[in-house]
Design a protein around this nucleic acid. Structure first.
Lengths: 207, 207
DNA sequence: TAGATTGTTAATCGATTAACAATC
DNA sequence: TAGATTGTTAATCGATTAACAATC
């Protein structure tokens, strides 16, 4: 089964496996069975074995899985070891938090630059990269060819900016604005983070 | 079908319906069919009707759905109109962004107070509420009975803080730290926002 | 070797989609 | 009334779980 055929349900579990395996590795655990991992993660052993076997056999009968090896393998499956160049748009409150707090290299990205429309914010450096005015976007993209963009923009300007970025050859988006990018643009990859949806889900579940 | 029986898949779609209906309402659209809404949202008309009918019949044969009425109805289903008291823990970069940027009342919450361990941050006001030292947590909870907590804490202290909060009668959590709260504590409601998982999913999907 | 645990196939379960009678 | 569209039941599809032979 190739990467393309793996269902989104499985894909979305991979980072969680990666996270748990990192914790196991850090606590010095070398070997784990699907049964034990299932108990720790609140899954079934069957599901774990099915998930891993979408990408190949990482275990050994009678033994289980080697934690550091599996961790490494999942990292490679996700693409951690092959970072993609990315730009961040919108250095407001949220953009600053994302840029300052997320460890991009450990998630398969390299932050190349930050863009904002405010003259006060541009011209300096933030989170180790330059902050540029949005006017310089096209030139920057030609020069550094970022493959992804993190959209920390107000919802009003997000769709317009998206069109611009797609025209500049960027087709992968991490979107924090209140619109669903996938709907309008087929062919692009977008992860929409809707904090409001998550919060309303919590509210509903409280009864 | 009561709220309890509705599957999580359906529940998680409700805030998205709410968002789209708000946009429709704001643009003055009064009537919409499941077919038209499906086209706009990238769903099937069947699914939309199934989803809404988990909570009762909001439509009218031959007509469709009245947008403002449906918007109002979904808001009530989520619980927007009955806000729950909440405290926010951890006024770091992320905590500040959440407190300052999220419109809590429009999502069914009322922010009662913010807690932090740093003396520099406590004693002042932020996002319209007081910032208190974590030492005052127990007293505050007895006095104001918050029902939920937003955890913007470092992962190291999150599980410990959770135990404390559960003991103080809080059982609903919006969690931004790198741990999965549901695993350790059954009976509590937790929405874990794993930005890292979302970002790694994007990385995987980029190939 | 015997015990354990994987990889994988088959069975079950739940969610989505299709169909259509009811009815506005 | 005729056309449209819902609410709801039945069919399909996909994802999860169970089972077990392979094998370390």
């Amino acid at each position: 089964m190739t990467k393309q055929n793996v269902s989104l349900s499985v894909i979305r579990r991979m980072p969680r496996y990666y996270r748990f395996l990192e914790a196991l590795k850090d606590s010095g655990i070398v070997r784990i069975s699907s049964k034990e991992l299932a108990a720790r993660m609140g899954l079934t052993a069957s599901q774990i074995r099915q998930d891993f076997n979408c990408f190949g056999g990482f275990g050994q009968q009678g033994y289980g899985y080697n934690v550091p090896e599996l961790y490494e393998a999942i990292g490679k499956i996700i693409g951690i070891n092959a970072p993609k160049g990315v730009i961040l748009l919108g250095l407001g409150n949220l953009g600053q938090t994302i840029a300052a707090n997320i460890n991009f290299p450990s998630m398969g990205f390299e932050l190349l630059g930050i863009f904002d429309i405010s003259a006060e914010k541009t011209g300096r450096r933030f989170a180790g990269v330059g902050v540029y005015h949005t006017d310089e976007l096209a030139e920057f993209c030609r020069k550094y060819s970022p493959e992804a963009a993190f959209l920390c923009l107000p919802s009003e300007v997000a769709p317009r900016t998206l069109d611009e970025l797609v025209a500049l050859g960027i087709n992968s988006f991490w979107n924090f604005s209140h619109c669903d990018l996938t709907v309008s643009h087929p062919g692009i990859v977008a992860e929409n983070v809707h904090l409001g949806d998550s919060l309303m889900t919590l509210r509903f579940r409280m009864g």
